[in-house]
């Protein structure tokens, strides 16, 4: 090869390297586009999701992804969830966090979206092909029953109980109720369940009871409002909730005990998990159980509870 050809070859190689470096530099300057993770939960604007969304926000900052919470109605059908999931995948979502709804199968979600899906806030005891992150609903039910028995010295003889939950939360509520009843049965408490209803808009229409047990945030707030208005006829309220309003009812004495799932941790851990999956597609996603705390009025403002309350107030 003569020197002219060598010279041209060297110049071309240097020019190619230069173009490569310039493109890298421009790419670096324009900044990396953040990957998007969409979140589909029922009634997403509701206060019960405040701490969950705060957890998502913090994880999104830490993991440098964009978390987008889809605006949804109070009730969602399986078809709507699948449609929303497909729509989000089409709109560029790299992964999905989906609250499980009865009828939605892992196969259908995977088929329609073809992106990683992690279930959040569902019943972790139910077997599913998809990983699930959320509170242990059965354990929360059991802890609620334990708190109730503590207050009544383990004796519910002659006491009547009203059990309520929101219509759309059937799956989680079912697991909580199951855990609740399980522990009562184990402890031999013989309270009488006067009513067990879902989606009861007006508790005053229900039979009078000594104790009202609400298995989700919506039903707890409804019952708390009744109690605050002295419409529960002296019934004592126990429940599971995750909003500041639910805590308020505990703070003001309308509720006696509150089980609060750690929504922040659920949001943070679930988004971290899918973000890692997006970065490393070969990684196997894992679901995790998030903790819950038992809040009582006297210990409401402990340091730990204040932190939880802080996430609910964001």
């Amino acid at each position: 090869m003569n020197s002219k050809k060598t010279f041209i070859l060297i110049e071309l190689t240097l020019a190619a390297l230069l173009a490569l470096l310039v493109s890298f530099m421009l790419k670096e300057k324009s900044g990396k586009e953040r990957q998007r993770v969409s979140v589909i939960v029922r009634n997403s604007e509701d206060d019960q999701w405040t701490s969950f969304k705060y957890g998502l926000r913090m994880a999104a900052e830490d993991e440098e992804v964009e978390a987008y919470v889809v605006s949804t109605a109070a009730e969602l059908s399986a078809a709507e969830v699948e449609q929303l999931a497909a729509q989000e995948a089409q709109n560029g979502a790299e992964a999905l966090l989906v609250q499980p709804v009865a009828g939605v199968t892992a196969e259908a979600l995977q088929k329609r979206t073809k992106i990683p899906v992690l279930l959040v806030g569902g019943d972790r005891s139910r077997e599913t092909e998809l990983p699930s992150t959320g509170p242990d609903n059965r354990a929360m039910g059991r802890d609620l029953a334990r708190a109730l028995l503590e207050d009544y010295a383990g004796n519910l003889d002659g006491k009547t109980l009203g059990l309520v939950w929101t219509r759309g939360e059937a799956e989680a509520a079912e697991a909580r109720r199951s855990g609740f009843e399980e522990l009562l049965a184990e402890e031999g408490a013989k309270g009488t369940v006067a009513f067990a209803v879902s989606g009861a808009d007006d508790l005053t229409e229900q039979p009078r009871v000594n104790i009202v047990v609400a298995f989700d945030d919506g039903s707890l707030i409804a019952a708390g409002a009744c109690a605050a208005a002295n419409d529960l006829h002296g019934a004592v309220l126990y429940g599971i909730g995750s909003s500041a309003r639910a805590v308020y009812y505990l703070d003001t004495g309308a509720a006696r005990c509150l089980i609060v799932p750690d929504g922040f941790l659920m949001g943070y851990q679930s988004l971290t998990e899918v973000a890692e999956k997006v970065r490393n597609p070969l990684r196997q996603m894992k679901g995790t159980a998030v903790q819950h705390v038992v809040m009582r009025r006297g210990t409401l403002f402990t340091k730990e509870n204040q932190e939880m309350l802080y996430t609910m107030s964001q």
Binding site: S3, F7, I10, E11, L17, L18, L21, M25, E28, K29
Partner: peptide
């Protein structure tokens, strides 16, 4: 420093290209 690295790299490559031309002309 990433952008500075790229910048120095670009400067070096440009200089290398120019010097190649100058070297060839001189040679």
């Amino acid at each position: 420093m990433i952008n500075i690295r790229y910048f120095i790299g670009i400067i070096m490559l440009l200089m290398a290209m120019m010097l190649s031309v100058v070297n060839r002309v001189v040679a």
